[in-house]
Design a protein around this nucleic acid. Structure first.
Length: 802
RNA sequence: GCGCGGCUGGCGGAACGGUAGACGCGCCGGCCUUAGGAGCCGGUGGGGCAACCCGUGGGGGUUCGAAUCCCUCGCCGCGCACCA
């Protein structure tokens, strides 16, 4: 037995990775699968830094699940790809003076190498990149499907403009109102014509369907929040000149307390409602608001500003004339862009009223609370004839009452805005539209797709407020596809989130070029069986993908409405109690760890840190424990490989079946940390028993295969198997064997543990009670008193109450 | 402000309402070694010689029995946020 070879992970792992590639181990037959299982993980953005430990954590967790499903008899498709378009790549390229078209392939090559090295069960035949014209041809096709269906439309909208970069920048690039790259330059807003997708039309369905999805509750909560449904009413406030100002409110019960009104500065009625003497002030205020960036306009907790228009509207409940103001705390994008202000019962209105000395009238009272701002559980006052009614009932009654006079309508409002997909940037798929003076915006015909992104060197955005492509007349001047006259291309590109909103549809059909996806394959493989990813995409990516799928379903392109019936969000890996970030200098690069410890050890260590769905704190001290465990398995396997077989010791057999049970359940639930702990316990038990046998180790290798795939293959082959361990059967759990032997029963007196009995399983309460009362320590605490009550949990516990 | 999570040894973390601290790290002691940063064996929540007592962020409750369920307060993390 002294001849156990040294465990050299690097050698074992590279040998098996080569063999998997050679034998196409991870390339399932997509046409004739047995029990198809589409195991999807969120594809990475290939940054220049390479795969980081968070990616690694996510992919390992997802890969374990895929391997587990395969061992359970599924044909598993586990694809990978790269989300390589977008502002991140473009900005990085600008910073280092490189071109994204040259940078991205390098980054992808690094990622590919790292993904192979960690041992993911990826089907590389179906790798894709969103920057590949063969891919974005269909992203453009998708845009056109929405365009033709009337779900893509043009609208003016404000964007952030950095006067120093001379470009449009993303909201994330605005830091406290300043440009992230020019900390002394204030960002402004500019209003441009942009393309939108009508996602808000689907708000109700996107919200309703959430109940049908098997998703992590936190993700569902975030989507629900984002969609933001609120019920209320539209109320009409009339102006003497005859104009009608419509407001949305969730608190129609407080209408008697509306002492003034506020319109968004951009509200279309502002000009009509501005009195002559206020024109100058109003113009100046609107100019100031427009000069602010979008982000800081929406950040609260600063002094309220606003201007009186010099005119009045009639409160439909009280008949009073109330002043009309404009203020930037009212947003044009939400509701009707106008509010009735009830300063007594809304914190923002309250602040504004104090700032400008406007009247505050309390109309809701609550016991012991002098001015219950925002209270919805009080009763009405000063609202005759509704005084004394609880708020909820008052809402209904007042809406009905005003409705009778034509000044109120019940209304549901969503926070979800239409999706602006235009980007005045270079690094993305050109939006496939041609503007013709005669025909208007015309979709590029399918036969002319893709509209290829030209390789231009001057991709830096400029002063003009439009995309860099707009500098290339030779590119954007084209003939109108419908009338043949001179026309010009749209020069904006589309949002990266459009690229990623459908990639899971492309994977199974990625080698097919004449259609976005093959109908039969899609029917076989979709919707996705399990989707695993981070909660950073809980709203945008996951909501957009749901929306796109819903539209494709409606247009008859796919036969399901929800792409991800089952989704699990993994947790975050932190380091020293804080999020990893370059600025903190606590970013862990996995390569060095894999080199030092091996991919199997690193994979298992990441999974052992904490619950997969909660994340964990990365400390490298702990990794030795996992390595020791794998060394023990290695040694045991070599010791028993050639030894004569002998039956399992009963204690080992029992533990084996308990372990099979626990690992099966925990892996299914993604509780990888406890599954690993169970395998460790088992190995400890085998070692304690002293004379290990092959039958004790062989099933363990299968349990271990999802977690440490290379080691499992190596030892599986050592046992003489000619096929991959993935072709093995997941070990069967025998409940009878797991339950064999004696049990320990805890004896409590008044709920405190006073003794333990070891007894054959299935003992009756009377037996246990007899033995318990014979126990000296139990007897001491019963102390001769009568047992008033006894609680017996079979094979577990007896509690005597005296 | 709203919505999710979370708070358990020195540390990461385990515990269908039923033995709190599995598993691992670290630490302590021993064995083996020229050596040990390798390996093996034993110990390791706090207090106490012991019998025992105390312990899951604080307070209250439900229960034979609560880390777990309910109420309440506090703290930490994440997401959203002048959304009317």
């Amino acid at each position: 037995m002294g001849s156990v070879p040294i465990y050299d992970p690097a050698a074992v792992e590279s040998a098996w990775q080569a063999r998997w590639a050679e034998q196409h181990t991870n390339e399932p037959d997509l046409e004739h699968p047995k029990n198809p299982f589409y195991n999807l993980m969120m594809f990475p953005y290939p940054s220049a830094e390479g795969l980081h430990v968070g990616n690694m954590f996510a992919f390992t967790g997802a890969d374990i699940y895929g391997r587990f499903k395969r061992l359970q008899g599924h044909t598993v498709f586990e694809p990978i790809g790269f989300d390589a378009f977008g502002i991140h790549s473009e900005n990085y390229a600008l910073n280092i003076g490189a071109h994204p078209a040259r940078l991205i392939p390098k980054n992808i090559a690094t990622f590919r190498r790292q993904l192979q090295r960690f041992g993911g069960m990826f089907d590389w035949r179906h790798e894709l990149s969103t920057t590949d014209p063969r891919y974005y041809k269909w992203t453009q096709w998708l845009f056109l499907q929405l365009f033709k269906a009337g779900l893509a439309f043009r609208k003016k909208a404000a964007v952030n403009w950095c006067p120093s970069c001379k470009t449009v920048i993303a909201n994330e690039q605005v830091i406290n109102g300043f440009c992230e790259r020019h900390p002394d330059v204030r960002v402004e807003q500019r209003v441009l014509e942009q393309w939108f997708f009508a996602i808000s039309k689907y708000a109700e369905r996107l919200l309703g369907n959430l109940a049908t999805l098997d998703w992590s509750p936190s993700t569902v909560a975030m989507q629900r929040n984002w969609i933001g449904r609120s019920e209320g009413a539209e109320l009409v406030f009339e102006v003497p000149s005859g104009e009608r100002i419509i407001v949305f409110t969730t608190r129609p019960d407080t209408v008697f307390g509306a002492t003034y009104m506020v319109l968004a500065p951009e509200h279309p009625l502002v000009d009509a409602l501005t009195a002559e003497e206020q024109r100058g002030a109003v113009r100046e205020y609107r100019r100031q608001v427009a000069a602010k960036d979008i982000v800081s306009r929406k950040v609260g907790e600063k002094a309220k500003t606003g201007v009186f228009l010099g005119s009045y509207a009639r409160n439909p409940a009280t008949g009073e004339a109330i002043p009309i103001w404009i203020a930037d705390y009212v947003l044009m994008e939400y509701g009707t862009g106008a509010i009735m202000a009830v300063p007594a019962h809304d914190t923002r209105d309250f602040e504004f009223a104090k700032q400008f000395s406007l009247p505050i009238r309390q109309v809701v009272r609550r016991e012991g609370d002098p001015l219950p701002i925002e209270a919805e559980d009080g009763t009405l006052m000063s609202s005759s004839p509704f005084d004394g009614l609880p708020c909820a009932e008052a809402k209904r009654r007042i809406v009905a009452w005003l409705g009778g006079r034509g000044t109120a309508t019940p209304r549901v409002q969503y926070r979800l805005h239409d999706w602006c997909i235009s980007r005045q940037r270079y690094w993305g798929p050109p939006i496939p539209i041609i503007y013709c003076a005669a025909c208007g915006p015309v979709g590029v015909p399918d036969r002319d797709l893709p509209v290829e992104l030209p390789l231009i060197e001057d991709f830096r955005p400029d002063d003009s407020g439009v995309s860099p492509l707009a500098r290339h007349r030779e590119w954007y001047f084209v003939k109108c596809p419908s009338c043949g006259k001179e026309a010009r291309r749209e020069t904006d590109v589309s949002d990266t989130f459009l690229d990623s909103s459908w990639y899971f549809l492309r994977y199974p059909s990625s080698e097919i070029d004449d259609r976005p996806w093959d109908a039969r394959r899609t029917k076989t493989w979709l919707p996705v069986s399990t989707y695993i990813g981070g909660n950073e995409h809980a709203v945008l990516h996951l909501l957009y993908s749901r929306f796109i799928t819903m539209v494709l379903h409606e247009l008859g392109h796919v036969d399901f409405e929800e792409p991800f019936p089952k989704l699990r969000a993994h947790g975050l890996i932190i380091k020293d109690g804080a999020k990893m970030s370059k600025s903190r200098g606590n970013v862990v690069i996995p390569d060095a760890y894999i080199q030092k410890w091996g991919a199997d050890t690193f994979r298992m260590y990441l999974m052992f840190l904490g619950p997969f769905q909660e994340g964990g704190d990365f400390r490298d001290e702990g990794i030795t424990g996992v390595r020791r465990f794998l060394e023990k398995v290695w040694t045991l396997a070599h010791e028993v490989a050639d030894a004569p077989a002998h039956p399992l010791a009963p204690a080992v057999e029992r533990k084996l079946h308990q372990t099979i049970h626990k690992v099966s359940i925990d892996t299914e639930r993604l509780d990888y940390n406890t599954a690993i702990a169970a395998m460790m316990e088992y190995v400890n038990a085998v070692r304690e028993e002293g004379t290990p046998s092959r039958g004790a180790i062989e099933p363990l290798l299968v349990l271990l295969a999802p977690f440490a795939p290379h080691l499992a293959e190596e030892l599986w082959a050592l046992f003489g198997h000619k096929t991959s361990v993935l072709a093995a059967q997941w070990p069967a759990y025998d409940e009878r064997l797991a339950a064999a032997g004696d049990v320990e029963i805890v004896v409590q007196v008044n709920g405190k543990v006073r003794g333990r009995l070891t007894i054959a399983r299935g003992a009756t309460e009377a037996d246990v009670r007899g033995l318990a009362l014979a126990d000296e320590s139990v007897r001491k605490f019963v102390d001769g008193k009568p047992v008033k009550k006894a609680v017996y949990v079979a094979d577990r516990l007896l509690n005597l109450v005296v």
